[in-house]
Every structure is written in C-alpha cells, then in structure tokens.
Design a protein around this nucleic acid. Sequence first.
DNA 1: AGGACGCCCTGTTCGC
DNA 2: TGCGAACAGGGCGTCC
Length: 263
Amino acid sequence: MPELPDVETLRRLVSRKALRQVIGHTSVRARKLLGRTPAQAIYKALHGTCFAGTRRHGKYLFIRLRGRGWLVLHFGMTGRLYYYTGREPDRRYNAMVVDFENGRHLAYNSRRKLGLIELTDSPRQFVERKGLGADALAVGQRQFLSLLENRRGKIKGLLMNQGRIAGLGNVYTDEVLFHAGVHPETPVQAMTRADRLRLYRCLRKVLAKAIEARVDVHRLPRSYLLPNRGRDGRCPRCHTPLGRLSVSGRTTYYCPVHQRRKA
DNA sequence: AGGACGCCCTGTTCGC
DNA sequence: TGCGAACAGGGCGTCC
C-alpha cells in the first residue's frame, strides 16, 4: 500500500543511506516492472555512477543518477526498498538489486510485481507525461479549494484521482475522510466551504502524522482509522462497527456515526 | 466527466 | 479441517 507517506519514508531512506556510493553491478530480475525500458539501459545508466539526490511526486520516487538523469520508482501496492549489507533479505521477491562498490546494496522488493522501474531525463517531464496532479503535500489551501470547484463526483473518487491530487491511495483517503468527518460518497457539490477547509486541514495533518509515524515508531496513534481497518474493525472514537462499502472498486471503511451521509 | 468494471499480480483470507 | 474462491489495491484501459 505504498502511498505518499510510505514513499516519502522510502525517499528519506535512500537520501539518508544510499547517496554518494559508487554503483557496481545492478541485476534486474523482474523485467516486467521495467515496462518498455530495456534492462540494458538500467545497467548502463547506473554502472559507475552514484545516487546524487532524491525527489518525490505523489507516489513516485525519483533518484538522481549523477550525470545520467533519474531513476524512477513506483511501488504498486507491495513494493518496498531494502538497504543492507551482507545477507540479502527476502531474496525471492527482489525485482532489482543495486550493488554498491562499498559492499552495500539497495533492493527493490515487490511481491505482486505491480509497480514501475524506469529512467527519465526530467522528473517534471515525467510527471507531465503521466498526467499527475499536484503533489498532495505541496497543494496549498487555495489550490485545494479550486480543485474541488465544479466537480460532480464523490469526494473519495476525487481524492484518489492521481490526475487531480497525487499521493493519496485507498487507505489514506479513508483516513483523511474519517478525520474530517466526511462520508466517502459525499458529492463534492454537497460540501460546504467549511467542510472543504476542514478536509484540507485533515489532509495535511494526516499526511504529516503518517510520515512522522513511519519514520519514527512505524505506528500511527490508535485514534487513527488505519490500525482499525478490517471487517471486524470499530471506530476508535465511539467503538461503532465500521461501515464497509465499495467505491469505484476499492474497499472503503468509515465510521457510520462520525461520517454521516449527506443527502 | 465520472464511474463501474476488468486486468495485472500473487500471498492471504474467506467461506462453504 | 481443507481447499478453491474471493480479496487486497495502484494504475490503466474500456465502456457507458
């Protein structure tokens, strides 16, 4: 479920540990993740250079290759990174392993092979080509309000639409709506200005808290929806059994008491 | 435009 | 208890 907070955590991992180390060999084991990029292009781009910096847009991580453009990573729903020395963790599912000449390694790991490994000359152009909206953490209040203007659909659909706001997936969309007290199927047009402002504040709060939790304790407060998701889950505030429904094919959890449906 | 749905993918969970 | 079906969900494409 790598969404914005998870990808931001991975970005920080790379930034903290994996920069400025000469890259030796890179092995690609799951070519499927490369899309149209030939594995040879990956080897060539990485060999002999080093990671020089990182950037993130929505759920995409960009790693700058000194003098050779950028490596682009998307983690699908099960992707993650391991930075390690010595024994390779979870070997079976490592789709790509970068060997640094100092004996350390960075592995892109994915059980379900839904994701993307690619090269680009420019993150900005990549973002444009993919048609991604503004990064969810970079959106200002005014811009957020304008994104909600004249929209016809349900609020959950809009928040999950990467072309509008990039970074929120199923899980954190539910989390944000829970904190804002907004029912996931609320038509955007039925939301008052106060609703929209509250939603914006909750979006910022939840993302910031989630990043903090992932980096430090790997755990969100118990008052969050996320630790309580699931068929037998209950609202952390009132203990009401969570409601469960499907919104555009994604399982949605919400509190029927705190997130009342608006007509 | 928006949304329902299917596909990809494979480990896990569900339900009979 | 066991086993096949359904589920999980990010992104994309198709269809209405």
